[in-house]
Design a binder for these strands. Structure first.
Length: 589
RNA sequence: GCGGAUGUGGUCUAGCUCGGUAGGACCGUAGCUUCCCAAGCUACUUGCCCGGGUUCAAAUCCCGGCAUCCGCACCA
């Protein structure tokens, strides 16, 4: 059966994208007003397809891997992104040529002149541009002043709009902010994962390539928290021998094939935890129907890796438009938790049991509330709390000099605490628990891109059907979307061969039996039977059931398979279970 | 953002040079047909990207905007 090969002939996907609109997968949003780049509507088929892809994702991350599922808001107050670094990181400083108006990223212009310009502040950039005498690379003219372009959509909360907020560019941050709660919900056991499926928003400068680069997109993210001092990750055993294609960043021009186990041993992949999630990602992609030959993992170049990332690998899938990133799997170390911990003042740590409890003597500060109370009244408790957190040796030397201890409260007020209120003692302490900030590995899935990949790889064009008089000149090729039945938007079509003589009644009874077991169905009585099959093939419905005149006598129906066009005759009463069985069997083949 | 190309029913397109009723095919809908792989027959629905200008008259010419595609730039 002739099918086309992706990447070999992009012209073959031409017909695909009109099919997708015609049959209700997706199309550009706000078309009646001319459309806006970077936004797409998912139609009836696209919505079901996306939901099914997410279902498979949940089967892996929530059901098999026990990730905790959360669902947090898209609108996020500014402070959160100040801590996370997005306010800076997602703002590019642009400068424009005063003659040709071409915009450039200021830090890119400084590559090669200074070290790590991406970490520079706007002022530093401005100075560096001037000191190095940088001119417009395309025409040589002077460059204008810096402009800020933030990739986050800005909005405000409440009336008056004084509270600035942004639409989240990734779902991850909420998970970090909720870390302590989630850690407790997991009963303080490590390691554990948290997952979120939702929308992300990025105000891309110039979205292209249709649904592959959106300003509002679906993402499924996992955050896997673990103890960085535990090098082994036993579950990794499962993927140790999985073969993968890798493009390591020390040699970006060649693809290497090896097992994930080897890659960790050779130090290409930084940890077993990261490699494990690459394995998970690969099996997820396989399950939704992306062929393994069209997958590879590419390591971020040192220059494109975010400054907090220890290591980062992208799953890329080959499409008609080339190799496209689908999933980013990053080791973000303790960066995010540290940022939010510092930003909010909340402790974000996990506890680790020391293998041997440690005896040590500790200098402890106590506050004598009997003294503090009468002096400071309402503030006494706060001062005491602040006092016992201060550096013990420093306090001791102050106390030894007989000077009062200066305590500053979070509200900014400063208080002089008399020496006699400060008690310093040496205690022997048995420490059996140690606190640490967990590291995190983040697999982040672009659902819309994966959906496009699934569609392209399920797409098959065939020579026209051999029988009857269809005319390929007019019809174009015969098109089939060969989805895995698990992700097909519609699971089965139900057709009366003729729209009369009691056939519709039989078909509708069967239809409701299929609905009862939760299958999404499609009833169709219009057009010839072949046309109805063709409609189902175009939306990737794996099974079509036809009630014919014989059904009235033998109470049986035919089930026709999308991929083979084969038909089997099954008693009507057994059709629902037979369909489930066929769906299940498809997976294993 | 820049340069180039493009924009006609749901889809693909003819018409634009040379202004004068917008045409086809597919898809879709209803009906006929014992109809199992886009068959046939009948009927039907749906359109000139938006705004302005020139003109008696604009899909067509001019200006502006928007969008798409390609290249540059940008980005995951």
């Amino acid at each position: 059966m002739p099918s086309f090969e992706l990447g070999k002939d992009p012209a073959l996907t031409d017909g695909l994208y009109s099919l997708l609109k015609r049959r209700g997968f997706f199309w550009p949003s706000y078309e009646i007003y001319g459309g806006i780049a970077g936004f797409y509507d998912l139609g009836p088929m696209g919505s079901l397809l996306r939901e099914n892809i997410e279902k498979v994702w949940k089967d892996i991350f929530i059901v098999s891997e026990d990730y905790l599922l959360v669902d947090c808001p898209s609108i996020t107050p500014e402070i959160a992104f100040r801590s996370s670094g997005h306010l800076e990181k997602f703002s590019d400083q642009l400068t424009r040529c005063i003659d040709c108006h071409t915009p450039f990223r200021a830090d890119h212009l400084l590559e090669g002149y200074v070290d790590a310009p991406d970490l520079f502040s706007p002022q530093e950039l401005e100075t560096a541009l001037r000191e190095n005498g940088i001119k417009c690379p395309s025409c040589g003219s002077e460059l204008g002043p810096l402009e800020e372009f933030n990739l986050m959509f800005r909005t405000s909360i409440g009336p008056g709009g004084e509270k600035t907020a942004y639409l989240r560019p990734e779902t991850a941050q909420s998970i970090f902010m909720d870390f302590s709660l989630l850690y407790r919900m997991n009963r303080e056991r490590m390691p554990f994962g948290v997952a979120q499926i939702g929308k992300g928003f990025r105000n891309e400068i110039s979205p292209r390539q249709g649904i592959l680069r959106l300003r509002e997109f679906h993402m499924a993210e996992g955050e896997f928290f673990f103890d960085p001092e535990v090098p082994d990750f036993p579950p990794f055993e499962r993927f140790k021998d999985s073969n993968v294609r890798l493009i390591p960043n020390n040699d970006p021009s060649s693809t290497k094939e090896m097992t994930l186990g080897d890659a960790v041993e050779r130090g290409l992949i930084c940890s077993e935890v990261l490699a494990y999630h690459m394995g998970l990602t690969r099996s997820f992609a396989c399950e939704i129907g992306i062929p393994i030959e069209h997958m590879r993992f590419r390591q971020h170049l040192a220059s494109e890796m975010a400054h907090y990332a220890r290591d980062c690998w992208d799953l890329e899938v080959e499409l008609s438009s080339g190799w496209i990133e689908m999933v980013g799997i990053a080791d973000r170390s303790a960066y995010d938790l540290n940022q939010h911990s510092t930003g909010s003042g909340e402790e974000m740590t996990a506890k680790r049991l020391l293998s041997e409890p440690v005896q040590r003597s500790v200098t402890r500060i106590e506050a004598d509330l009997k003294v503090l109370g009468p002096i400071f009244r309402g503030n006494a408790g706060k001062i005491a709390r602040e006092l016992i957190c201060m550096d013990a040796s420093g306090i001791r030397s102050i106390k030894d000099k007989g000077e009062p201890v200066i305590v500053e409260l979070p509200d900014g007020s400063v208080h002089k605490v008399p020496t006699e209120a400060v008690i310093i003692s040496e205690v022997e302490e048995k420490v059996s628990i140690e606190k640490y900030t967990p590291h995190v590995v983040e697999p982040s899935f672009g659902i819309d891109r994966l959906m496009a990949a699934v569609i392209e790889h399920a797409y098959t064009e065939m020579e026209k059907s051999p029988l009857k008089g269809s005319d390929e000149e007019e019809m174009g090729p015969y098109r089939v979307l060969r989805f895995d039945p698990r992700i097909s938007p519609i699971k089965c079509g139900v057709f009366p061969l003729m729209n009369r003589d009691g056939l519709p009644e039989i078909a509708k009874t069967l239809l409701s039996d299929l609905k009862k077991i939760g299958l999404i169905t499609y009833y169709d009585h219009s057009g010839s039977i072949g046309r109805r099959y063709a409609r189902m093939d175009e939306i990737g419905t794996p099974f079509s059931i036809t009630i014919d005149y014989e059904s009235k006598e033998d109470h049986a129906a035919t089930i026709r398979s999308r991929d083979t066009a084969e038909q089997i005759r099954v008693p009507i009463i057994d059709v629902p279970s037979k369909v489930l069985e066929l769906m299940d069997r498809y997976k294993k083949e």
